[in-house]
Simulated assay, not measured.
Amino acid sequence: MADISVIVPVYNSERYLEKTLNSILKQSFRDFELILVDDGSADLSGEICDKYAEKDKRIVVIHKKNGGICSARNAGMEIAKGQYIAFCDNDDLYLDGLLEDNYYLADKYDADVVRFSRRRTDSLNGKVIAVRETKGFQTGYIPSSKFEKFYEQINNAGEGVWAGLYKREFLEKYNIKFNENMKYGYEDLYFMIQIYMHQPSIVLNSKVYYHWIMRYDHSTSAKINKNNIDSLMVCLLEKWNLYKKYRMEETKKYLWIKELSARICQVIKYVGPEKAGLKLKERIDVIKYFATCSVFDERFRFNTMLKMIKQTGVGSAGICWMFSHRLYFVLYCLIIGKNFRMY
């Protein structure tokens, strides 16, 4: 049995795949299996997977009918034999020491989860337009019994599943899998919430080990997909259940306000001007649809907003207050800003 199973869902990534695989195979840590799940690629990605498997006995290849990234990851998890499971997307990069350093921490503390930092590079037409790194959490071990106390640190570690190691026994015990109904985003968030619902022991490692490359020309759709909004609504309901389970709905309500305001901004940006062909009314209708999620049933009154400003700042509290009072057009103008255009 390998110490780690690294799962890579592969779909039409012939331009980037070899660089990704090389970044994993050159890791100083050697006791791992690499599971490549070819999810019905129409380009040469499947052949590249087979070529690499012929050269390295640690590589296992699955060829399957296209079912989406969640289906591909689940297929890899079904055959994984490692003590811990790790993930990598087919166009991202592992940085030096990712497996060795984080497996050391996982083994030292017998942790259910290890979370580490990532670097994000945004590119458009091959040009880098922004580089950011995960910030806002400290390195340390958090036993299961202290999950609620240190939840803010845990939450600040982000939601990308590739920025972590996960004990396979823990995932199997609680039947934690990816939601295959989520086709256009938020599948990572859902997966992490399911893990946190079962109070794992966690090691946080603030060092950067993963390079996430966001290629807007490759990843951004010109159309809005309702599944994206539906998936986010499911995740918010699950996350509210998480808050209630650990009795954080009052003790950490400021975090919930920050969460909601951030998601409101995400949705408004999602229907922004770059979505060609949409009339303004259609954009506002998507925002209104998002507002039907039951987590917004509570109306944030003015006195609530004033109380939360001290902990969240004017922005987060103000956004939630305006959203709960159906000021969708005002929020759209404020958040889109100079990019606002009347279609």
Rank of each mutant, 00 (worst) to 15 (best):
Tyr243Val: 10
Tyr243Lys: 06
Lys244Gly: 07
Lys244Met: 11
Lys245Ile: 09
Tyr246Asn: 08
Tyr246His: 09
Arg247Asp: 12
Arg247Gln: 13
Arg247Ser: 14
Met248His: 00
Met248Trp: 00
Met248Pro: 04
Met248Val: 07
Glu249Pro: 03
Glu249Gln: 11
Glu250Lys: 12
Glu250Ser: 11
Thr251Leu: 06
Thr251Met: 05
Lys252Ala: 06
Lys253Trp: 00
Lys253Cys: 10
Tyr254His: 13
Tyr254Arg: 03
Tyr254Leu: 03
Leu255Asp: 08
Leu255Arg: 12
Trp256Gly: 02
Trp256Met: 02
Trp256Lys: 04
Trp256Phe: 12
Lys258Phe: 00
Lys258Arg: 15
Lys258Asn: 15
Glu259Val: 02
Glu259Trp: 01
Glu259Pro: 04
Leu260Ile: 05
Leu260Tyr: 01
Ser261Leu: 07
Ser261Val: 11
Ser261Tyr: 00
Ala262Met: 13
Ala262Gly: 09
Arg263Asp: 09
Arg263Ser: 07
Ile264Cys: 05
Ile264Tyr: 00
Ile264Asn: 04
Cys265Leu: 06
Cys265Val: 14
Cys265Ser: 15
Cys265Trp: 04
Gln266Gly: 10
Val267Ala: 05
Ile268Lys: 05
Ile268Arg: 04
Lys269Thr: 14
Lys269Cys: 12
Lys269Phe: 11
Tyr270His: 11
Val271Pro: 03
Val271Met: 05
Val271Ile: 15
Gly272Met: 06
Gly272Tyr: 03
Gly272Trp: 03
Pro273His: 14
Pro273Trp: 04
Pro273Glu: 15
Glu274Lys: 12
Lys275Gln: 10
Ala276Lys: 15
Ala276Asn: 13
Gly277Asn: 06
Gly277Glu: 02
Gly277Pro: 09
Leu278Arg: 14
Leu278Asp: 04
Leu278Cys: 10
Lys279Met: 10
Lys279Val: 13
Lys279Asp: 13
Lys279Gln: 13
Leu280Tyr: 11
Leu280Trp: 01
Glu282Val: 05
Glu282Met: 08
Glu282Pro: 11
Glu282Tyr: 03
Glu282Thr: 08
Arg283Lys: 14
Arg283Gly: 08
Ile284Glu: 05
Ile284Asp: 05
Asp285Arg: 09
Asp285Ser: 13
Val286Tyr: 13
Val286Ser: 03
Ile287Gln: 03
Ile287Ala: 02
Ile287His: 03
Ile287Thr: 07
Lys288Thr: 08
Lys288His: 00
Lys288Pro: 00
Tyr289Ser: 10
Tyr289His: 09
Tyr289Ile: 07
Tyr289Asn: 07
Tyr289Pro: 09
Phe290Arg: 05
Phe290Leu: 08
Phe290Met: 07
Phe290Tyr: 08
Ala291Leu: 06
Ala291Trp: 04
Thr292Met: 08
Thr292Ile: 12
Thr292Pro: 08
Cys293Thr: 07
Cys293Tyr: 02
Ser294His: 06
Ser294Val: 13
Ser294Ala: 13
Phe296Lys: 01
Phe296Ser: 04
Asp297Tyr: 01
Glu298Thr: 12
Arg299Ala: 09
Arg299Asp: 03
Arg299Ile: 15
